[in-house]
Amino acid sequence: MDVFMKGLSKAKEGVVAAAEKTKQGVAEAAGKTKEGVLYVGSKTKEGVVHGVATVAEKTKEQVTNVGGAVVTGVTAVAQKTVEGAGSIAAATGFVKKDQLGKNEEGAPQEGILEDMPVDPDNEAYEMPSEEGYQDYEPEA
């Protein structure tokens, strides 16, 4: 019985440690998101679009440190934060509304985080759909 109880105690310690790591990862992701939003706020009209992409990228980098179902929630929060940063930029006159959601080359930025393969159960990952990809044929 002692062996059984000791095993359960060790398992509990492992769960607590994993929860603490997840909590730490979420806190880091939130900190990076805040950094990115402050970065966007300090940019001029020309830099705002690039700044919004930076927020998304920093958040995406930190999301990889967070495991399990938390990833889905962090990704949703990050996307809403990026959308909010863009709205703030438009409201303050840093950028025109028609410039939001495009990178410096004018290509749409939507789907940055949505296409990231995420499995809350950590069982399997699927690649994003290939609808947006084109076949590449090298020139002879």
Rank of each mutant, 00 (worst) to 15 (best):
V15P: 00
Y39R: 08
G73C: 15
I112R: 07
L100A: 12
E35Q: 04
V26P: 00
P120Q: 11
P138R: 05
V15A: 03
P138N: 04
V55R: 01
E83W: 11
K97F: 02
A85M: 14
K97G: 11
E139Y: 13
D135G: 05
V40P: 00
K43N: 02
G14V: 14
V66T: 03
D135H: 09
V118D: 10
T22S: 06
V63E: 01
G93C: 03
M5C: 01
V37A: 06
P128S: 04
A69G: 06
T33I: 03
V71T: 04
K43A: 09
A56G: 04
K32V: 08
E35L: 10
K12I: 03
P128W: 08
A140F: 08
M127S: 04
V55H: 01
V71N: 02
G47Y: 14
E20R: 02
V74C: 11
K12V: 14
P120D: 06
K21A: 12
A19W: 14
V82L: 13
E104A: 06
Y136S: 14
Y133L: 12
G106A: 09
A90V: 11
E131Q: 07
E83G: 06
V52G: 01
K23C: 13
H50W: 12
E61P: 02
Q134N: 08
T64S: 08
V82F: 10
T75H: 15
V26D: 00
E83S: 10
V16E: 04
V74T: 02
I112L: 05
V49I: 13
A89M: 10
L100Y: 02
A78F: 15
T64D: 04
E105F: 12
T22G: 03
S129P: 11
K43F: 14
T75N: 07
D119Q: 13
K6S: 03
V95H: 07
D98V: 03
K58I: 14
E104D: 08
G7N: 13
S87E: 11
A29I: 15
V63W: 15
A27V: 07
D2Q: 12
E61T: 04
M5V: 09
G14R: 13
G86Y: 14
Y125L: 08
K45N: 02
G47A: 15
D119C: 12
L8W: 12
P138V: 09
A53G: 06
G7E: 04
P128R: 10
S87D: 09
Q99L: 14
T33M: 15
T72V: 05
L8S: 00
E139Q: 05
A140H: 06
A19L: 15
M127N: 09
S9V: 10
A140L: 10
D121F: 14
G132R: 13
E35T: 11
K96G: 13
A30I: 15
E28R: 07
K23Q: 07
K21Y: 15
V49Y: 11
E61Y: 05
G93F: 08
N103M: 12
K23Y: 15
A89H: 04
A107Q: 05
V82Q: 06
N103S: 07
T92I: 04
K12H: 13
A17S: 08
A85N: 02
E57H: 05
A19Y: 15
Q99S: 10
A29F: 14
A140R: 12
E13I: 04
G31R: 10
S42E: 13
Q79M: 09
E130Y: 10
I88A: 03
Q62C: 08
T72Y: 14
D119L: 10
H50A: 13
E35F: 14
E110W: 04
V71P: 01
Y39L: 11
D115L: 05
F94T: 04
D135E: 13
E131V: 11
V71K: 06
Y39Q: 03
P128L: 11
P120T: 11
K34R: 06
S42W: 15
A56T: 08
V52W: 15
G84H: 07
E61M: 06
T54V: 15
A91C: 08
N65V: 11
G41A: 11
S129T: 09
D135S: 03
G25Q: 15
E104Q: 07
